Computed example of a mutant assay.
Amino acid sequence: MKDNRQAQRKLQLSPSTAKVWLILCLLLMVAGLTAYTSTEPVIPMGDYVFNYPANFGNRLNVPADNPTTQQGVYLGRLLFYEPKLSATNTISCGSCHQQSQAFTDGKVLSVGVNNGLATRNSMSLANLLWARKFFWDGRAAGLEEQVSFPLTNPHEMGQSIEVSVKKLSNTKLYPGLFKIVYGDSTITGERIAKAIAQFERTLISANSLYDKYLRNAYKPTVDELKGMELFNRGPDPEKGIRGANCTHCHGGPKTYLELFHNNGLDSISKDEGMAAFTGLVTDRGRFKVPTLRNIALTAPYMHDGRFKTLDEVVDHYSEHIKQSVSLSAFLQGESNEAGGKSLKLLPKEKKQLIAFLNMLTDSTFITDKRFADPHQSTKN
């Protein structure tokens, strides 16, 4: 008995020591809970509500079989920036469509896996919610269809859909997310494309100085106003009206129309454009009219990235339109000089036009955290 009492006394802790141990245990529990909760992101749920100005119009392009949801956009954003979708695990959609450059990449031709080059310049992804034809040649009739091309193209991401599905299925992250979005954890190419398309439809740019001007929240400079006037007018030298003739193709608040034109880059275009799949001579060199929003951030310009600056672009339309059988009718016979064969803008007018184009830069679009690469800790 004496030995047992002595053993019990040896096991007893002093009040101060016991208090220290209690505090340490509590701290460890809190740290454990924090570590656990930080790996379990809160996923937004429910319908996604698009926010855009009324003057953009409600002719949205959202297919009935792919309604936009918050959880779908969440998944699509992760997949948009997911390098596992490429053959080398180094390239994602976001590699060629970088937010800081209005979702272009600043290259003449994008660089894909194994240093392969894309065949055309990377287009901006701004305001695709209203678009109906995709790629420079319009070969895709929807975003869901468009997504599959760069994923599997050997010069871009270069990986079969089957391999992409297998890679994502072997992660801890994606099966659970696909279940939340689609009802079960099955990962398919169609579901990958639908999720990425949902995210891309949320990339709305509508807060430039031009937008602020339209809602009476910004007063343009003299040059910006003059440039705006030139942009919105066609020339009529007989009446003394000078214009840059831009709105036939870039009219409306979104600064693009769903049009395809040969804009006079070459007499005989090396790139067939739409003619590659229509077979029509009149479609040779015809390409999609891109939006001019954030145009100051999306150099180089044209389908082949041949122009490095906006000055070169304006010079082209002013003096260097090449005649061809497929040249856009909007570019024929337009001149600020009576009997002139080219637009012939004055040097001052060119600067004013570019001043207006700079008004189309939306700084909130290129810094919006909703569009940025998700935190790397969410990827496995």
Score class of each variant (00 low, 15 high):
Leu13Arg: 08
Ser14Arg: 09
Trp21Pro: 02
Leu26Glu: 06
Leu28Asp: 01
Met29Ala: 00
Tyr36Ala: 01
Val42Pro: 02
Met45Thr: 15
Gly46Lys: 14
Asp47Met: 09
Tyr48Met: 02
Phe56Met: 00
Asn58Leu: 05
Leu60Asn: 03
Gly72Val: 10
Arg77Phe: 00
Leu79Asn: 08
Leu79Cys: 01
Phe80Gly: 09
Tyr81Ala: 01
Leu85Thr: 03
Ser86Phe: 03
Thr88His: 00
Cys93Tyr: 13
Ser95Asn: 07
Phe103Tyr: 06
Gly106His: 04
Leu109Ile: 04
Asn114Met: 08
Ser122Lys: 11
Ser122Asn: 03
Met123Leu: 08
Ser124Asp: 10
Leu125Gln: 11
Ala131Leu: 06
Asp137Ile: 12
Ala141Lys: 07
Leu143His: 02
Pro150Ala: 03
Leu151Arg: 04
Leu151Pro: 08
Gln159Pro: 04
Gln159Glu: 14
Gln159Leu: 04
Ser160Glu: 00
Val165Gly: 07
Lys167Gly: 02
Leu168Gly: 10
Lys172Phe: 01
Pro175Val: 04
Gly176Cys: 10
Gly176Ala: 15
Thr186Pro: 06
Thr186Ile: 10
Glu190Val: 07
Ile196Phe: 06
Gln198Arg: 06
Glu200Cys: 15
Ser208Arg: 08
Lys212Glu: 11
Lys212Thr: 02
Pro220Ile: 05
Pro220Leu: 11
Pro220Trp: 11
Thr221Ala: 02
Asp223Cys: 05
Glu224Ala: 14
Leu225Ser: 15
Leu225Thr: 14
Gly227Ser: 07
Arg233Trp: 05
Gly234Asp: 13
Cys246Lys: 09
Cys249Arg: 12
Gly252Tyr: 07
Lys254Val: 09
Phe260Met: 08
Asn263Ser: 00
Ser267Pro: 03
Ser269Pro: 04
Lys270Phe: 02
Met274Ile: 12
Ala275Met: 05
Phe277Ala: 10
Arg286Leu: 02
Phe287Gln: 12
Phe287Tyr: 12
Arg293Met: 15
Arg293Lys: 14
Tyr301Lys: 07
Asp304Ile: 00
Lys308Thr: 00
Asp315His: 08
His316Pro: 11
His316Leu: 10
Glu319Lys: 12
Phe330Cys: 05
Phe330Gln: 11
Glu334Tyr: 05
Glu334Trp: 06
Asn336His: 13
Leu343Gln: 05
Leu346His: 14
Pro347Cys: 03
Lys348Asp: 14
Lys348Gln: 14
Lys348Gly: 03
Lys351Asp: 13
Phe356Asp: 03
Met359Arg: 07
Asp362Lys: 12
Thr367Glu: 12
Thr367Ile: 10
Asp368Pro: 06
Phe371Ala: 12
Asp373Leu: 12
Asp373Cys: 12
Gln376Lys: 13
Gln376Asn: 14
